[in-house]
Structure formats: C-alpha cells, structure tokens
Amino acid sequence: MYEEQGYLVVPDQFSPSETEALLRESGQLSQLDIPQRILERDGEQVRSVYAVHQLSDTFERFTRDSRNLEPARTLLDSEVYIHQTQLNPKAPFQGDVWEWHQDYLYWQRDDGMALPRALNVSVFLDEVTEFNGPIFVMPGSHKLALDDQTVTRGHGWENTLTADIRHKVTPDMLRQLAMRLGLVSIKGKPGTTLIFDGRLLHCSPPNLSGNPRTVIFTRYNSVDNPLRPIENPRPEWLASRDPVPLTALAHAFSAELPDSDRDQALAESGR
C-alpha cells in the first residue's frame, strides 16, 4: 500500500498512557518562549514547536523508539537521521489551516536535500476526527513531480512556517489532481501512526471543533542523502545538517517514563 498510495496508517501503535505522557510534555514545550515555537496569526495560539527531540528527553527517546525508527529504516532502505521534528497542536476553534503541499519541495528548495529519500512518521496524541483538523492526502501523488506547478512566493525561511505557505501548488493543478486521485481524510484514536512519503500531497483544515488536535511529526532522512551546502540555509532546528545514524532504544521509550506512567503503559500494551 505504501508504495502505491504513498502512506500507511497503523492504529494503536502507542498506548493511552504513552500518548498522555507526550501530551503533558507537549504542553510544557508550548509554554517556552523560544524561536522554535511558532504562533498562529492571532499571535496567541501555538501553531508549531520544532526540534522537540532537542528540547525534551522524552521526545528524543520517542524518536528512537523502534515503532518509529524501524519503519523509517525499512521504507528508506538505509540507516536514517532526524531531518526535523514538529509538534502541531491545533487549538479548539483556533488551530489554522496547512495548505496543500509536498514537504520534499521545501526540503529541496530551502534545505538543499538532493533526493526524496525522506519520510514523515506522525503520531496522533489526541483523537483526530473529521471536525478538528484531520490530515487530508491525495493518494498516489508522491509519484508526481510538481516542481513546475509549485510557485515560490516571499523571501526568508520564516515564510515556510506560516498559514500562508511559501511554496504553493497552483490551484488549477490541485483541481486536476483532486479529480483524478481523490482525497482521503486520515482520522484515528490517540496512538495512531501515519507514515507518509515526503512527496505526498497533504494538507490540514482548521480545527472547527471544541476538541484539541495534537500530532507529532518526525521527518527521517536517509544518511545517504545529506543536505547539500546552500546559501542562507534554514536554522539547524528546522533542518539538521548532521546526518549521524540514529541508534534504536533497547526498550520502548515508555520504560523511562515516571513509574506510574511506565507501569500503566506496559500494562496497556501487553509488554
């Protein structure tokens, strides 16, 4: 399915206690007044927090958990490193849109990534429904080269992070692809994992509900695909230039959570 559709959904990959622990950590990181924290257009709600694996031991271990790392290694057929991590909390009635885009075009144009040998492993920390900003995808769009149909507007890496995204696929091309490929809305319980190709067209509508929607994205890149030197590269917390292979944890990341969380997580997962 992944090769044909460009994505794979794995339900119940992480236990309720594990996702709750990550949510608590997410709340703490969202309070930090740092460059890695990006706000919505209202200047109040948190849109994203980047490089969470550098800000939090819990998230650092999470990115090396075999449930995240092994699928990335298998699908990319190589050792991998973290190109980027991104925490996306969509606040009730406040979380804004992410327009249709291919991540790889950002990584190529703004970071100097030579080949599309990178993917997303995204884990739902809240329940994702049709109302609170699910991830929409166009199945099979990862097979398409849309460089000529993607227009770059604005200057500076800051424009890659806002609701008015920098690299826009033309509306005419989006209409054609939507009619030809169709749309799929990815929903799921907390702990669901969505793995998708860096070239897959995807977007996310605003959160129109009273329920939060938090997703953690880990972008793994092949160690054989390091970023090329470019002028004015994005900050290291947006695009890592240190392609050191990741070492998998000897046990699940939840084994190093506080005792109460760990015991409950182990019981829930049956480990």
Score class of each variant (00 low, 15 high):
M1S: 15
S66D: 14
T170A: 10
R64S: 09
P212W: 12
G188F: 11
A51T: 07
L146P: 01
A72R: 00
H202S: 07
D197E: 14
T162N: 06
Y220A: 03
I34P: 00
V97F: 11
I135V: 14
N88Q: 06
H101Q: 14
E236P: 01
W157Q: 08
A163R: 05
D148L: 12
V123N: 01
D111E: 11
I165D: 00
R61I: 08
G133M: 02
Y81Q: 06
A114I: 07
R262G: 01
G133Y: 06
Y7Q: 01
E79Q: 13
I38F: 01
Q5P: 03
A145I: 12
I34K: 09
G198W: 00
L69Q: 00
G182Q: 04
L181W: 10
S56E: 05
G270C: 09
I216Q: 12
T247P: 06
D148A: 14
E79K: 00
S240V: 02
A91Y: 05
Q13C: 15
S122L: 07
V49F: 00
E79H: 01
S78A: 15
L249N: 15
L119H: 02
L76V: 13
D259M: 09
W237N: 01
V184N: 00
E158P: 00
V184Q: 06
V121H: 13
D172R: 05
P226N: 02
S269K: 09
P92G: 09
L201S: 14
K168Q: 15
S209H: 03
H167S: 11
V184S: 10
S141I: 10
R219H: 12
V137G: 13
F124W: 03
S141L: 11
L75E: 14
T193K: 07
N232M: 09
D147Q: 13
T152E: 09
D126R: 02
D242C: 08
T152I: 14
R213K: 03
N221L: 06
E70N: 11
T150N: 12
H142R: 05
G27I: 00
E256R: 01
A248N: 04
E268M: 05
G6I: 14
D263A: 08
A252T: 07
N132I: 10
I82D: 05
P71C: 06
A267C: 04
Q149C: 11
T85V: 02
W157M: 04
D111A: 07
